[in-house]
Amino acid sequence: MGSKTLDLWAGIFVFAGIVALFMLAMKVGNLSSFSWSTNNYVLYANFENIGGLKVRAPVKSAGVVVGRIADIRFDNKDYVARVTLSLENRFQFPKDTFASILTSGLLGEQYVGLDAGGDSEFLQPGETIKKTQSAVVLEKLIGQFLFNKAEGDKK
């Protein structure tokens, strides 16, 4: 076999590998829902408790993915979690938008939900969302329930 044919076959092989990887990323994985474009802007939100929220978790509004979590830090001054949201430029939200950490399904992954408010001004890139609601921590919920129940029994 000539070295030309050999190179051709090696090329076909490598190409097949690239196609397979591409399909793994797009068809099998979630790369297609990623936006790689640079036309994103950043908003911040402070939460008292983020529960199991992870970097790259989706940011949804009305159930539609509008961005992703870019970063999660602990603010050592106010003792809150400071979450960086990376949103697509084409989605703008009013100043009084409400950010909450929600869970998809009963045991699914956690994401940040944005509920648009009625303000006429939009949030500017780099601004912090004022109104937030922390993740629901099951232990606290149960504790509260038991406490309330005990309170109720006393009466």
């Binding site: 990887l21 793994l24 990323a25 099998v28 994985g29 979630n30 790369l31 297609s32 990623f34 790259r56």
Partner: peptide, 19 residues
């Protein structure tokens, strides 16, 4: 089949780590 797959497989955590 495809939707659950795409929701559950992460390009970085799963595909890249596998590679």
């Amino acid at each position: 089949f495809w939707a659950q797959m795409q929701a559950g497989v992460d390009v970085f955590d799963d595909v890249l780590n596998g590679e």
